[in-house]
């Protein structure tokens, strides 16, 4: 087991370094921040340009710049955002909690709805309920997230006026005040549902097919023959085994969600890492792009790593490969 964890850890670190290299390299090739940042009055003044370059450390060779970037990236120091004129680190500190809240809320919704629906539609195969679930899954996988988000805003925020259309309300940071909690949930409702929709569909299909397979095994049939109640057989004997692949998939999707599903954050003006990333891309704000992508990538790799290790605990067969 220790060997397995060690191997996965080393793989994770290598992936992270590769990611940082690709990201830094492509941003480095994309443009010259020193020129981009020159005030208009000094646009053709080469001495000002050289000074700027030296100040940003851009006169050094690529590999030295990369090393400096890496050294500072470890402590989340990505320099100053061009547009906001303050450290990217500070912006990240405000943005990460928002993205994590949204991702966790979306995940809870997706698992809470997807798993029971998948199990029930496997048990009650080919009934009306199964068909409705299937139709819902097909719809959930085909509908564009940003569109369903807009439609929900039109209905729930515009037409009925039940829920807020955008933003996070007055919640800030990781832990809200007691008085802010109801408002926080109201703001989370629409974006979390949209995030959950596509995952619910996938989790449901996965749980259903895993459950169908398990229901066909000898030990489940034996439990039934033995005269155990349906409820015990389904939820205790069958579901527990059927859920192993679902857990892996859930972990991987949580990692995807942590990346701040950019589109959802944009539609709901949710102040998370995804919105920060898009703002950075659209305004050539390199430090901000670097910070947002590195944090998203690291979150993704780490979550995938944790899921793999947990999976190794849950299913000893995995470790042997």
């Amino acid at each position: 087991m220790t060997g397995y964890i060690g191997r996965r850890l080393i793989e994770g670190i290598i992936t992270l370094i590769a990611l940082s290299f690709v990201v830094f390299g492509s941003v480095h090739l994309a443009g010259d921040p020193a020129r981009f940042l020159l005030p208009i009055s000094a646009e053709h003044d080469e001495t000002v340009y050289e000074e700027q370059k030296a100040r940003l450390g851009l006169d050094k060779p690529f590999i030295v710049q990369y090393w400096n970037f890496l050294r500072r990236a470890v402590i989340l120091d990505f320099g100053n955002s061009f547009t906001e004129r303050r450290p990217v680190q500070e912006i990240l500190k405000e943005r990460i909690p928002a993205t994590v809240h949204l991702a966790v809320a979306g995940m809870i919704l997706a698992v809470g709805i997807g798993v029971p629906l998948g199990i029930i539609s496997a048990v009650k195969r080919d009934t009306l309920l199964d068909r409705i679930c299937k139709a819902f899954a097909i719809f959930g996988m085909a509908v564009p997230q940003f569109w369903i988000a807009i439609m929900l805003i039109i209905l729930f925020a515009g037409y009925w006026g039940w829920l807020p259309a955008y933003g996070r309300g007055d919640t800030q940071g990781w832990i809200p005040e007691w008085s802010q909690i109801p408002n926080m949930f109201r703001h989370l409702m629409l974006p979390a549902s949209v995030l959950a929709l596509a995952i619910i569909a996938a989790i449901m299909r996965l749980a259903r097919s895993a459950m169908l397979e398990v229901l066909d095994t000898d030990y489940v049939k034996f439990a039934q023959v033995k005269g155990m109640g349906d409820r015990v057989v389904i939820w205790k004997h069958a579901a527990r085994n059927a859920l192993i692949p679902v857990i892996t998939f859930g972990g991987i999707s949580l990692a995807g969600l942590l990346n701040g599903s950019v589109v959802v954050e944009v539609v709901f003006a949710w102040p998370g890492v995804g919105l920060m990333l898009l703002d950075g891309v659209l305004s050539n704000n390199y430090p901000q792009v670097l910070g947002a992508i590195m944090v998203s990538g690291a979150a993704y790799i780490l979550t995938a790593l944790v899921v793999d290790i947990l999976y190794g605990y849950a299913d000893p067969r995995v470790r042997l490969n």
Binding site: V22, V27, A30, V281, V289, G297
Partner: peptide, 15 residues
């Protein structure tokens, strides 16, 4: 491994 939209954003940043 990475969400397509993130890779796409990286490419658009570059190009």
């Amino acid at each position: 491994g990475f969400p397509s939209i993130l890779v796409a954003l990286l490419i658009v940043t570059y190009l």
